[in-house]
C-alpha cells in the first residue's frame, strides 16, 4: 500500500486510507486532464461572505487519486470553502492561492474552473426548470470538445448509482428528493470525469443503500481515472464508505487538525472542540 504520491510527508502517509496508484501521470482517456499532476493546491486561502471573514487561512493539497475528507461543525466554513473553490459569485477572496494542475483558479470564472477539471457536487443541487439532465450533460461535454455521451453510457451510469433512467429526461433536480439529487450529482460526475471533485455533504439525504452506491461509484472513479476527492461531511458514515487517506478538521474557518482516518475516530469520541489547533495541514507550517 503506497502513500498518496503527491502528498507532503506527514501522518497521512502512514494512514490506512485507500491505496493510490503510483502512476499519477497516466490518465485514462476522456477525463479532464489538466486537473492532474499537482492536483488541487490550496494555500493560505482567506475569504469573506457579506463582509465577514469565513475562511481564515486554508491549506490543502488533493493529489490525483487521493481521497480527503473535511469535517467540521455547522458554520465552520465547509460549504463556503466548496463555493470559493468553485468560484461562486458573492464570495470575496481576501488572500491565498488556489491552483489546479498548476493553473491559478482564482483568476478564472466558474465554468473555466470546471473545464480545467474541478467538479462540485453541492450540498443543495439547484433546480433548473426545463433543462433536462441528459441535455445538460451533452452541453457540458460539448463545451469540453468531447462527444455527446451515448445513451448506453448514460443509462449505465444512472444505474450504477441507483438513479432511475427516467430521470435522464427530467429537468435538473426538479421535484427530486434529496437522495435522488445526490445520486444525480454522482452520475454527472461519472459522465464529466473531472480531475478533482468536491463533494459537499454528498451523504445527506441518502439512505444506507444510496450512500453505499454513491460512495462506491466515487471510489471506482478514483481507481478508474485517478479522481481526486475532497469530501465535506458531518458524518463518519461517509468516511466508512469512502475511506479517505486524509481527514481535516475545519473549525472557525481554519483547519485545526489533519491526519489519517484516526482523526475521525477521535472526533467521534471528543467532538470538535475545544481542541487546541494543531497545524498539521500540509504547507501550514
Amino acid at each position: 500500500m503506497s502513500g498518496p504520491a503527491t502528498m507532503e510527508p506527514g501522518p497521512a502517509g502512514s494512514g490506512t486510507g485507500r491505496s493510490v496508484r503510483g502512476d499519477t501521470g497516466g490518465v485514462s482517456g476522456g477525463a479532464d486532464d489538466r486537473g492532474r499532476g499537482q492536483g488541487l493546491v490550496v494555500e493560505g486561502l482567506r475569504a469573506a461572505v457579506g463582509g465577514r471573514e469565513v475562511l481564515r487561512g486554508i491549506d490543502l493539497r488533493v493529489g490525483p487519486g487521493e481521497v480527503h475528507a473535511v469535517m467540521g461543525p455547522n458554520g465552520s466554513g465547509k460549504s463556503t470553502l466548496s463555493h470559493v473553490l468553485m468560484g461562486r459569485p458573492g464570495y470575496d477572496v481576501l488572500g491565498g492561492s488556489v491552483t489546479l494542475g498548476g493553473v491559478d483558479l482564482l483568476a478564472l470564472p466558474t465554468w473555466e474552473r470546471a473545464r480545467l477539471g474541478l467538479f462540485l457536487a453541492p450540498q443543495y443541487p439547484t433546480e433548473v426548470p426545463g433543462v433536462g439532465l441528459a441535455h445538460a450533460l451533452a452541453e457540458a461535454l460539448s463545451g469540453r470538445d468531447r462527444p455527446e455521451p451515448d445513451r448506453t453510457t448514460l443509462e449505465a451510469e444512472a444505474e450504477r448509482v441507483g438513479l432511475g433512467v427516467a430521470m435522464l429526461e427530467r429537468a435538473l433536480n426538479v421535484d427530486l428528493s434529496g437522495g435522488e439529487r445526490k445520486r444525480s450529482e454522482t452520475m454527472q460526475l461519472a459522465i464529466v470525469r473531472p480531475g478533482v471533485a468536491i463533494l459537499d455533504e454528498i451523504d445527506s439525504g441518502l439512505d444506507v443503500d444510496g450512500l453505499r452506491a454513491v460512495a462506491r461509484r466515487v471510489s471506482d472513479a478514483v481507481d478508474e481515472w485517478g479522481l481526486g476527492v475532497l469530501a465535506i461531511t458531518h458524518y463518519r458514515r461517509l468516511l466508512g464508505e469512502l475511506q479517505p487517506g486524509m481527514v481535516h478538521v475545519l473549525v472557525g474557518g481554519r483547519i485545526v487538525r489533519s491526519g489519517g482516518p484516526e482523526v475521525a475516530e477521535e472526533l467521534e469520541r471528543s467532538g470538535y472542540g475545544p481542541d487546541t489547533p494543531v497545524p498539521l495541514a500540509p504547507g501550514a507550517g
Binding site: P89, W111, R115, V131, A136, E139
Partner: peptide
C-alpha cells in the same frame, strides 16, 4: 441556476440559453 450549470463547465452564453 446559472452558477449550477456553469459549475458543470457550461459557458455563460450556453447556460443562459439553457435557462
Amino acid at each position: 441556476q446559472r452558477y449550477y450549470l456553469e459549475s458543470r463547465g457550461i459557458e455563460p452564453t450556453v447556460a443562459e440559453r439553457l435557462v
